[in-house]
C-alpha cells in the first residue's frame, strides 16, 4: 500500500507529528511538503540540515517543482534558513545559540495573528538534532515548541529528529508532547534490496488505545510503498 493510504494527512486530527529516525527518514518530510503544497496549506519550513535547493530538487523529482516555486513566491510556503544562520553564528564569537529560534517565533507569531482563526498551518522543522549539535540548549527547544503551540490550535507541528544524534531523554519527552509519533528504523535483519527499513506509527491522539502500526517501507523514485507487518 502507499503512504497516503496509511496516513491521510487531510483527515488527521493530530497537531504534533514527531519523526524519530535512526536512519534516513527524510522521505517523510518530502512527502509532507508535497502534501502541504497540494493542499495549499500555509507552511513554515525551518531548514537546518539541507539547503532549500536540495528540497527543490527532490520536489522536482516528485513532479511538484512548479507548485513548489509558486508556493514560495505567493508566500504559502515560507522558508526559515537556520542552517546559514548557524554557520554565521559559528564564526561570530558573541552569538548565543539559545536565541536561534527567536526570530522564527516572532515572524511566525506575526503571520499567525494576521491570519483567519480557522486557517490551518504547518510548521516543519528539519532537523532538530542539528540545532542540538550546534549547542542550542534543550530547554530553549522546548520553550520554542511550547510558545509556537500556544500561538494557534490549528498550527500543526512536524518535527524531524535523529535519535542517534540526540539525547534519548529529550526524544522521550518530545514523544509525550506529540500526537502522532513515527519511529523510522533500519531493518533489524540487515540490508535488503527490496526493503529500506521499518516504520512504526504511534497514534497517541486516541485516548483509550494508543494504536501502534508497524510497516516495512521501500522508497521508490516517486512514491513510498508500505507493507504491513
Amino acid at each position: 500500500m502507499e503512504l497516503n493510504t496509511v496516513i491521510e494527512f487531510d483527515k488527521e486530527q493530530s497537531l504534533f507529528y514527531l519523526i524519530d529516525s535512526n536512519t534516513d527518514g527524510s522521505f517523510l518530510i518530502h512527502y509532507l511538503i508535497a502534501h502541504s503544497i497540494r493542499s495549499n496549506t500555509k507552511t513554515f519550513f525551518v531548514t537546518l540540515s539541507q539547503t532549500l535547493s536540495h528540497f527543490k530538487g527532490v520536489q522536482a523529482k516528485l513532479g511538484n517543482l512548479t507548485s513548489f516555486n509558486s508556493c514560495l513566491t505567493n508566500g504559502s510556503l515560507i522558508n526559515f534558513d537556520l542552517m546559514t544562520k548557524l554557520s554565521e553564528n559559528f564564526l561570530d564569537s558573541d552569538s548565543n545559540e539559545g536565541h536561534l529560534f527567536d526570530d522564527v517565533y516572532e515572524k511566525i507569531g506575526e503571520l499567525v495573528k494576521k491570519a483567519d482563526s480557522k486557517e490551518k498551518f504547518y510548521l516543519i522543522i528539519d532537523d532538530l538534532s542539528i540545532a542540538l549539535l550546534a549547542g542550542v540548549p534543550e530547554t530553549c527547544i522546548l520553550e520554542f515548541l511550547a510558545k509556537i503551540q500556544s500561538l494557534n490550535d490549528n498550527l500543526c507541528l512536524v518535527v524531524y529528529i535523529q535519535s542517534m544524534l540526540s539525547n534519548p531523554f529529550l526524544i522521550s519527552d518530545l514523544s509525550q508532547m506529540s500526537d502522532l509519533y513515527f519511529k523510522i528504523e533500519n531493518l533489524s535483519t540487515g540490508y535488503s534490496k527490496e526493503i529500506d527499513g521499518q516504520i512504526s506509527i504511534h497514534r497517541l491522539y486516541e485516548n483509550l488505545n494508543p494504536k501502534i502500526e508497524k510497516y516495512l517501507y521501500k522508497v521508490n523514485e516517486r512514491n513510498v510503498k508500505l507493507f504491513q507487518i
Partner: peptide, 28 residues
Amino acid sequence: NRASKLRLVNFLNSDSTGLNEIILEHIF
C-alpha cells in the same frame, strides 16, 4: 502540554470543568 490538553478536552467531552491551564500558560 497542548497534546495532553486536547486529549483531556476530548475526554471531558469538550466540557472544560476541572481543567486549569495555569501551568500550560507558563511552562517553558
